[in-house]
Amino acid sequence: MLEYVFYILSAISIACALLMVFAKNPIHSVLFLIGTFFSIAGHFVILNAHFLAIVQIIVYTGAIMVLFLYVIMLLNLNKESESTKPNIVKVAAVVSAGLLFLVMLASFKESIAIPLPEGTDGIGSVKNLGKVLFSEYLLPFEASSVLFLSAMAGSVLLAKKK
C-alpha cells in the first residue's frame, strides 16, 4: 500500500519538475513547482517527518512560491516572450545534466541502510525535533535569526528606489 503511495508521489514530483522546466509561461512554472513541493511534503509524511512536512507546506508553498508569483506579476513577466537558447546549447545542457545524473547515481548507490536502533519511532515529531533543536543546535538557531534580520534589511535596501 505505502509502496504505491511512494510511486504515485514520485511520479507527481518528477512530472511536475519536468513541466516546471519546460513550461513556456513563468506562472505555469511556479504552479508546477508548487505541485512538486506538495508531493515532496507527501514524501516527508510517509518518511515519518511530520514537522518538516508542515514546514515544507507553510514555508515553501506558502511563503516562497507566493513571493515568486508576486514578483512575476509585479514585473509583468507572465507572457511567453522569452527567447530561447540555440539548439546546440540545449543539447549540451541535456547531455551534461544526464552525465551529472549518472555520476551522482553511481556515487550514491553504494550507500546502504543500516539496521535501525530500537526506539527511533518518533524522530520526526515536533517534540523530538524541538528537543534536538533547542539543546544541541541552539547557537545555529539563534544565528539564523541574525541571518533573517540581515536578509530583511538587505532586501529592503536592494529594492528601495535610489
Binding site: 518528477i14 519538475a17 545542457a93 541535456v94 551534461s96 545534466a97 544526464g98 545524473f101 551522482m104
Partner: peptide, 9 residues
C-alpha cells in the same frame, strides 16, 4: 538525484 538533475537542466 533525478530531481536534482532536472534542476540542473
Amino acid at each position: 538525484v533525478t530531481l536534482f538533475s532536472i534542476g540542473v537542466l
